[in-house]
């Protein structure tokens, strides 16, 4: 049962610039995954375990106590571009 995929839209959401050939390649690969998911959904009845949270644990919290943060110089040394303690990124808006 083939699943319709707007692969160009998916690529845009992921900010990937793909060629026609690549789009086709990924459309087929993603299609196989989604077809499998569709088969799973055809199963009747509720799953016997919580599939998203299978641990059976609830309410794992921490107390509101502040702790240490990273050393800024060491942190910023990992970045491609910094200025006055900030990370520098390209302009935020797309053309």
């Amino acid at each position: 049962m083939p699943v319709e995929i707007d692969i160009a839209h998916v690529a845009r959401l992921a900010r990937l610039g793909l060629s026609e050939q690549e789009l086709d390649h990924y459309r087929r690969q993603l299609g196989v995954i989604l077809e499998h998911a569709a088969r799973v959904q055809e199963l009747e009845g509720e799953p016997s375990v919580d599939v998203t949270h299978p641990l059976g644990m609830v309410n794992a919290f921490r107390e509101d106590l502040p702790g240490d943060s990273l050393d800024r110089d060491e942190l910023l040394a990992q970045a491609p571009e910094t200025r006055d303690g900030y990370f520098v990124a390209p302009p935020a808006l797309e053309g």
């Binding site: 502040p66 240490d68 943060s69 303690g85």
Partner: peptide, 17 residues
């Protein structure tokens, strides 16, 4: 995470992984 919530701190001083 346990980084301090602090308005007006020096940039990128209250951060962790």
């Amino acid at each position: 995470c346990s980084c301090e919530v602090s308005f007006g701190a020096e940039p990128n001083t209250k951060v962790c992984p």
